[in-house]
Amino acid sequence: MNGAAGAVLEAADLTLDYVSDNGRVRAVENVSFAVTKGERLVLLGPSGCGKSSILKTIAGFIKPSEGSILLDGRPVTKPGPDRVVVFQEFDQLLPWKTVRENVAFPLKVARGKSQAEAREIAEQALVRVGLARALDAYPHTLSGGMKQRAAIARALATAPEVLLMDEPFAALDALTRTNLQSDLLDLAEELKFTLVFVTHAIEEAVLIGTKLHLLSAHPGRTLATFDTKGFGRDKLGTTEFQEIVRDINAALFARPAGAAA
């Protein structure tokens, strides 16, 4: 099966259903998008629109009801080290291992690195995210922001083909969130990784993404796509930035044709 030309990752007519006590519930309907190498795709939409479900399907945790997820033109059927997820929850680290051991562990298990190689790569990744002084700390001693830095370091250390982030900064205070957004952009510029990022915050979506895929309220359907490349930190507060935020807001909350006023 071939995907879109040049696409590393592609959702092709993706539909997701869940079975509940009340029967089958549709979470996502007929969503398609393509991501090329080094792009940062943001999935944006209201709570319950299926953003996280799409991310879990990309990760291989959920099977599509219809359509498919393609990685390098091949259907995704299960989880793999080529896709790594950073979740919103702070407690993603193994509490009995140090920060360095947490980052090194998947390198040994999923990438077959020796203990010495894994340790060296882990240290490099942790230094890169600003945790050089916390290598031997245990997760319970870290702040929420430090835990997320460690989770990002662990994900990047395995060199996944696609990095998946599910509202990773949503539970942080405003200052820490801003700092981590900036750090993520620095890492993206340095490492040129491919990213799929889920959020319901419009300004964060514009800042982080080079491409934005806007989803409707439940069930999630494609409302619009926006080219957000070039709206980085230097554009924050500018007229251009605020205009695209207003355009996205208008598309997100547009009243359907024929709806009562």
Rank of each mutant, 00 (worst) to 15 (best):
Leu93Val: 06
Asp234Lys: 04
Phe61Arg: 11
Glu89Arg: 15
Arg246Asn: 14
Thr141Asn: 08
Leu9Gly: 08
Arg133Gln: 12
Phe241Gly: 02
Ala259Cys: 04
Lys147Gln: 13
Glu123Asp: 14
Val28Leu: 02
Met146Leu: 10
Thr98Leu: 04
Phe87Ser: 09
Ala150Arg: 02
Arg154Asn: 01
Ile152Leu: 09
Ile54Glu: 02
Arg255Phe: 01
Ser32Leu: 04
Gly73Asn: 12
Ala155Pro: 10
Glu117Asn: 03
His218Met: 03
Val25Pro: 05
Ala205Lys: 14
Ala217Glu: 10
Ala174His: 08
Asn102Tyr: 11
Gly130Asp: 01
Val99Ser: 01
Ala11Asp: 03
Ala59Trp: 05
Leu131Tyr: 00
Leu163Ala: 01
Arg128Ala: 14
Ala122Gln: 03
Val42Pro: 05
Glu66Phe: 06
Glu243Ala: 11
Arg177Ile: 12
Leu94Lys: 05
Ser65Lys: 02
Val99Cys: 01
Thr239Met: 09
Thr238Val: 07
Ala27Gln: 09
Ile202Pro: 04
Ala118Asn: 05
Ser65Trp: 05
Ala34Cys: 11
Asn102Glu: 12
Val245Ala: 10
Arg100Pro: 01
Ala153Glu: 00
Leu163Cys: 00
Glu10Ala: 10
Asp247Ala: 11
Val85Arg: 01
Gln242Pro: 00
Arg40Ile: 15
Val206Gly: 06
Pro219Gly: 03
Phe231Trp: 05
Thr228Ser: 12
Gly230Met: 10
Asp13Pro: 00
Asp17Tyr: 03
Gly73Ile: 07
Arg119Gly: 03
Asp72Pro: 09
Gly60His: 04
Ala254Leu: 08
Leu175Thr: 12
Leu180Ile: 03
Leu131Gly: 02
Gly130Trp: 04
Cys49Trp: 08
Lys108Asn: 00
Ile248Lys: 10
Asn2Cys: 00
Leu41Thr: 07
Ser143Ile: 07
Ala217Phe: 06
Phe231Leu: 03
Pro81Val: 00
Gly112Lys: 05
Ala205Glu: 08
Thr15Ala: 05
Thr178Trp: 06
Leu135Gly: 14
Phe87Gln: 07
Leu44Val: 09
Gly45Ile: 11
Ala5Asp: 13
Arg26Val: 06
Gly144Tyr: 08
Leu187Lys: 08
Gly67Asn: 09
Asp21Asn: 13
Glu189Val: 09
Asn2Met: 08
Glu203Val: 06
Arg255Thr: 15
Ala224Trp: 04
Ala150Leu: 04
Phe105Ser: 01
Ser65His: 14
Ala34Trp: 11
Thr238Tyr: 06
Ala153Gln: 01
His200Ile: 14
Leu43Pro: 06
Gly130Pro: 07
Leu191Asp: 02
Val129Ser: 10
Ser53Asn: 10
Ser216Asn: 07
Leu71Glu: 01
Met1Glu: 09
Val85Glu: 02
Val76Glu: 12
Ala157Arg: 03
Val86His: 08
Val196Leu: 02
Glu10Gly: 04
Pro81Ile: 00
Ala224Ser: 14
Ala261Ser: 14
Leu187Ile: 10
Lys192Ile: 03
Glu240His: 12
Phe231Lys: 00
Leu55Val: 15
Val28Gly: 07
Ile208Leu: 12
Val84Asn: 14
Phe197Ser: 04
Met165Ser: 01
Lys108Ser: 04
Gly230Leu: 12
